[in-house]
Design a protein around this nucleic acid. Structure first.
Length: 403
DNA sequence: TCTGGGGTCCTAGGACCC
DNA sequence: TCTGGGGTCCTAGGACCC
């Protein structure tokens, strides 16, 4: 943590956040869309992925239901999401980061933390590095980003938000509390809509209010864990180090997944068991295939059901042994569904998730008495091979065909 | 045409074992 | 027939993040 002169780097953490990433990438090569409101993704019954700043001026935000976005900004141009392109551009940007330092923690396709304390001798101070990064990304990718620079991960993240769009904000150590304390509590990591409302009800509106609330009081209000987290964040004292490759966004590095799942919102609400279970099978096949590709198996199957009124329930069952076999997961999911005893309730969404994943090599499965040696597992592997060769739609369970 | 899809973590209660 | 505490596993729901 020293420069060539031996002085410690006071603000070694950079948080780089691409500006309206999906919208910027989607319109990058379409100059006719640069000066009009643009919305990315979000079809029927969906939410939008992103919106450019022209659309945001009308109140449109990422994650907003497309119906609402459309109402706020009826003349916006809608463009489809191109996930392959997003991934390609994102990977290129991460490569740019890695030319600065190997200490890169990728948070998502459009966001990363960099610890540059080992790079200042070669590249200059953190603020200089931030500006050079922004220039490079703009030159190479044709999109802009904003950078927050601070001593800690949490402050850097808040600083990048303040820097948007297309800017840099440095928060030196002596300015941390004057930067943090005027912010609304909702800005803090871990404070969403519900917690924000609860804190406001208690009269805790700003980060400064939280900072000056006794820890025990805070913990009583929001729980022990979140309480101490908020207290730390409010003083900017969190010491979390960045962990390179923490999130596996590009199928490389990162922590192993603890669960894998898939869910689907129906085009219209469904009350027919046959139709629901057909979807459950499709989702199960997708999840199990991903598990086999990743070389993992899991013991707990959980089924999610969302009703027409948006209430959502989950039911889980833990099996005796871990599996990655489509039919075994499906059988469990069907048992969970039938145990719900739904009488033609209208369902909006159904989801399947497998939890407690472990490497398949650690699973020593005993063949059940009477189970054929070449059972479902071999059938699955044949499906996976065909899927690799011919694409996802090539091989499907028979009950999914001809629909 | 209100409200996606992929995840993680926390809390709380009950069962069960020692 | 009175009485505890701790630890682990499992389930359900909720909140949050990108």
């Amino acid at each position: 943590m020293t420069t060539s002169a031996g002085a410690p780097v006071a603000t070694p953490i950079l948080h780089v956040d691409m500006d309206a990433f999906y919208a910027s990438v989607a319109t990058r090569d379409r100059p006719e869309l640069h000066d009009v409101p643009v919305i990315v993704g979000g079809g029927y019954r969906g939410v939008i992925l992103s919106a450019n700043y022209h659309a945001r001026a009308f109140g449109v935000r990422s994650g907003m239901p497309s119906t609402r976005a459309r109402r706020l900004c009826p003349h916006a141009v809608s463009v489809p999401a191109d996930h392959d392109l997003f991934s390609t551009v994102s990977a290129a940007v991460v490569e740019t980061f890695r030319r600065v330092t190997p200490q890169v923690e990728v948070v998502s396709l459009d966001e990363a933390f960099l610890d540059v304390r080992g790079s200042t001798r070669r590249l200059g101070g953190p603020a200089t590095i931030a500006e050079r990064l922004r220039a490079t990304i703009h030159d190479e990718q044709g999109i802009t980003c904003s950078v927050g620079v601070a001593a800690s991960v949490s402050v850097a993240k808040l600083a990048s938000r303040r820097a948007k769009p297309d800017g840099v904000v440095v928060v030196p150590p002596e300015a941390i509390t004057s930067f943090l304390h005027p912010l609304d509590v909702g800005e803090l990591y871990g404070v969403g809509e519900k917690t924000q409302a609860m804190l406001h009800r208690l009269g805790l509106v700003t980060v400064g209010d939280v900072a000056h609330t006794p820890l025990r009081t805070l913990q009583r209000a929001v729980g022990a864990g979140l309480g101490s987290q908020l207290h730390e964040l409010a003083w900017g004292t969190d010491r979390r180090e960045i962990t390179p490759g923490r999130v596996s966004v590009f199928g490389m590095g990162g922590d192993p997944d603890k669960s894998m799942g898939a869910q689907e919102t129906f085009g219209r609400d469904i009350d027919d068991r046959e139709v629901v279970l057909r979807e459950v099978l499709k989702l199960t096949a997708k999840v199990a295939s991903r598990m086999r590709v990743a070389g993992v198996a899991g013991r707990t199957v959980s089924l999610t059901v969302r009703f027409a009124d948006f209430t959502t329930i989950t039911r889980a069952r833990t099996m005796g042994e871990s599996t990655d076999v489509t039919q075994e997961i499906y059988r469990t999911a069907v048992a969970l569904y039938d145990a719900l005893g739904l009488q033609r309730a209208r369902l909006r969404l159904v989801g399947v998730r497998v939890e407690g994943l472990v490497p398949r090599t650690t699973v020593h499965r005993q063949l059940l008495l009477g189970e054929r040696e070449h059972g479902w597992s071999d059938a699955d592997r044949a499906v996976d091979r065909a899927t690799r060769r011919f694409g996802g739609a090539a091989v499907q369970p028979a009950s999914l065909l001809g629909r």
